[in-house]
């Protein structure tokens, strides 16, 4: 191609660009109807819309035109993950979006809500509080969530006079909902299991604004051989009611995190609270026998 040809080619291209044709495909979009169309609704004024959180995520299937819908549905039954949510253009469907936001809100609520004042009294627990004075402080000052002031320390000392073999602590942690839903069922089975094995326990504590490390301070105060902290876990989008048990042999402030044995996922869709309680009792017996918890126990049991 010589210079002249090239010049005329460029001129030709330039002339085409000035014809007013859209330069980007899709920019010629014209809405079919300029005004949004108001559709009729199934609800009368004052009605409630259905609760999106009541839908079982394993059964909520929204994908259209799947190769094998039946198989997809079957696969979905195996996981609470948000599979098969379909799409509207490049985005979520409204239902998916609403459900996601509802679950997220429930998770946040569960962090910021309190276990009721009556919880400890109704269940015969000794109620104490860490150095934190509010949820905000609890969230921003993890160190305070592991310590007690002298007044609360005295309350613990007064309630638990003799050195117990096992001290059970129930702490709100990051999910009050988890504690309300699971702690007492789990505790009842756990106490049965310990009693059956002849293991002595101190009066159970309820700790508000509780971090796992608060159990170490309880260890310092009571001189217990083992502490078991039932604590609400940071909520996720699958459940806001997941509880864990952190078991530490010979706890003291500053004990290594690797010295803890954890049983997690205690909730209705995971390990049921009663069954977990019975399991923890057996685990505690093993830990007391081996005189070690955490990573050391794993090595020992193998």
């Amino acid at each position: 191609m010589n210079k002249q040809e090239l010049t005329s080619l460029v001129a030709e291209i330039l002339s085409q660009m000035n014809t007013g044709e859209p330069a980007v495909k899709g920019s010629d979009y014209k809405p079919a109807s300029p005004e949004p169309v108001r559709k009729g609704t199934d609800y009368a004024d004052g009605d409630f819309v259905p609760d999106v959180t009541e839908l079982d995520l394993r059964k909520l299937y929204l994908t259209e035109g799947a190769e094998n819908e039946e198989k997809f549905r079957k696969m979905k039954m195996k996981t609470p993950a948000r599979l098969g949510s379909g799409r509207a253009g490049a985005r979520y469907k409204t239902l998916t979006m609403l459900r996601f936001r509802a679950d997220h809100a429930a998770a946040q609520d569960s962090v910021f809500s309190q276990v009721s004042e009556d919880f400890a009294k109704e269940n015969g627990l000794v109620a104490v509080q860490t150095e934190c004075q509010s949820k905000d402080e609890y969230l921003t000052r993890p160190d305070k969530g592991r310590r007690f002031d002298s007044e609360n320390e005295k309350m613990i000392r007064d309630a638990i006079i003799e050195k117990p073999t096992v001290q059970i602590v129930i702490g709100d942690g990051l999910s009050s909902a988890a504690i309300t839903a699971n702690a007492m069922d789990c505790l009842a089975a756990l106490k049965d299991g310990l009693k059956l094995r002849g293991i002595q326990t101190g009066k159970e504590l309820f700790v508000r604004y509780c971090r796992v490390g608060a159990g170490d301070a309880v260890g310092d105060i009571t001189g217990c051989e083992l502490v078991c902290v039932l604590v609400g876990e940071r909520p996720g989008l699958v459940t806001d009611k997941s509880m864990s048990a952190y078991i530490t042999y010979k706890p003291y402030t500053g004990v290594s995190e690797s010295a803890r044995t954890v049983v997690s996922n205690i909730h209705a869709q995971g390990t049921p609270a009663v069954e977990a309680g019975a399991y923890i009792a057996e685990l505690i017996e093993t830990i007391l026998r081996k005189k070690v918890s955490g990573v050391g126990l794993h090595a020992e049991v193998k």
């Binding site: 059956l196 009663v274 069954e275 019975a278």
Partner: peptide
Amino acid sequence: RDMAKALGQAVAM
């Protein structure tokens, strides 16, 4: 149901 340990120990009690 996943509850044998809890039920078994309750019976044993």
